[in-house]
């Protein structure tokens, strides 16, 4: 097993603190806090080469767990081993084998072309220049990055920037990839390209990938296995099919109509999620999707139609509302 977590827990001491510097100072002198569990007793093991999706609503403890696995946060209790090391010691041998990519945070130098950032990273990881060049061109091919590498980062699109971030993070050929929301904010095409790359990279190098995402699409495209975490506890660990069928057996159909329609007009086509003027969003069972869409197009004057997965937030939210998860195997 390349990643092992046993009864991993993290409790934050959250300060009851007034905002601002004054409050900070007061807090500094006399501390008052509550203990808030962020992760409680999470155990799992991941084999080399696996791609595992990490699911859960905001604040469920995904990022905390990810950071404990990388050694950025020290666990309150429990043990972690990643590639045979205790992450929190942050030994060089461990750091050479892992990487962390955060979708909303960037490590590339803003004013410079990505190539300059790659060179910095190559030096930090002790790669020789020819080796670095070889790896850069190899990864650039896989990521379909070309002249973007010589353009300042600030002039790149979000998608190009993310691909360059991935290249920078993978230059040292890590054995384990921790990806926190790697497709956040990307458009559909860019998301797909990042997914394809990750799948390709996993196939070619046998690297282990652990990723969190808000987009069900990322998880379904990449991960056979998912870990579902909620309120700091592990609720589901198993194959994706089992989860996605149980949790998200429906799709969202967004319509733009030429003439606004009342909510009643859609009975029989699906549950009305939202209705605003001529914009309507329907929740349609996955099994009836094709039929429903055909009927909708037939019955209404449709300007635009879009089918999407419900956001994972919504799936899981709905799930807990219905209290269906309590009896799931953990």
């Amino acid at each position: 097993m390349i990643i092992e977590a046993e009864l991993l827990s993290k409790t934050y001491r959250v300060a009851d603190k007034q905002p601002g510097m004054a409050g900070t100072l007061r807090h500094f002198v006399r501390r008052r806090h509550r203990d808030v569990p962020a992760v409680s007793g999470v155990s799992f093991a991941i084999a080399p080469g696996e791609m595992v999706g990490f699911l859960g609503p905001n604040g469920a403890g995904k990022t905390t767990t990810l950071k404990m696995l990388t050694g950025l946060i020290h666990p309150t209790a429990g043990t972690v081993r990643v590639v045979g090391h205790d992450p929190k010691r942050r030994q060089a041998a461990f750091l050479h084998q892992i990487t962390l990519v955060m979708g909303q945070k960037q490590q590339l130098i803003w004013d410079l072309p990505p190539l300059d950032s790659f060179r910095v990273n190559a030096a930090v990881y002790g790669l020789t220049p020819p080796e670095a060049r070889r790896r850069i061109s190899e990864l650039a091919d896989m990521l379909e990055l070309g002249e973007e590498l010589t353009r300042p980062v600030r002039k790149l699109s979000l998608g190009q920037r993310m691909k360059a971030e991935l290249l920078a993070a993978l230059l040292h050929r890590p054995a384990v990839l921790f990806l926190d929301e790697p497709t956040l904010g990307l458009d559909v095409n860019a998301q797909a390209r990042v997914r394809d790359f990750l799948a390709d990279y996993n196939r070619r190098t046998g690297a282990t990938v652990l990723l969190t995402s808000h987009y069900m699409g990322d998880i379904t495209a990449l991960c056979e296995r998912v870990l579902l975490i909620h309120q700091g506890r592990l609720f589901y660990d198993g194959r994706l099919e089992g989860l996605s069928e149980r949790l998200a057996p429906y799709r969202l159909v967004r319509l733009e109509l030429t003439v606004p329609q009342p909510a009643a007009a859609f009975t029989g086509h699906g549950e009305v999620e939202s209705l605003q003027g001529n914009q309507v969003c329907l929740r349609v069972p996955a099994a009836q999707l094709t039929g429903s869409v055909a009927q909708l197009l037939e019955r209404f004057a449709v300007v635009d139609l879009e089918v999407s997965d419900p956001p994972i937030e919504q799936i899981i939210g709905g799930l807990f509302e219905r209290g269906r998860v309590d009896d799931s195997p953990a």
Binding site: R90, H96, K105, Q106, Q107, V124
Partner: peptide
Amino acid sequence: GTLDFVLLKP
């Protein structure tokens, strides 16, 4: 929050 990147460098 990008201090994390620095801490993960060997």
